[in-house]
Amino acid sequence: MIVPFHHLLVLATLLFLLGLMAVLVRRNLIMILIGVEIMLNAAGLVLVGASALWQQIDGQVLVIFLMALTSAEVSISLAMVVYLNRRKKTVDVRAFDELRG
């Protein structure tokens, strides 16, 4: 291990929090999806780090699955963004509040 594991964790946490910030604060659907991507990457970083820590290959395998999952998620969510944009001519998440009680 080139660095202590917890330094890696700190880096991953920072990235994750940035992604979370984007998800929570931004109103643009695209930006929210970008935030999700960032968080997934942070998770991937932890997995790779763990793989290096215990010198096991499983963590890296999981990252591959994570990437496959992400691409699936992104393809569908972007399709929905297109759909929503077609419906309301906007990608502002505040416009889509039909579930309001």
Binding site: V23, L24, R26, I32, V93, D97, R100, G101
Partner: peptide, 17 residues
């Protein structure tokens, strides 16, 4: 409680957070 269901996605995500 009804007011909790704002219909805003970010509000729900805040709940997650």
């Amino acid at each position: 409680f009804r007011q909790l269901a704002t219909g805003q996605v970010s509000f729900y995500l805040q709940g997650f957070a």
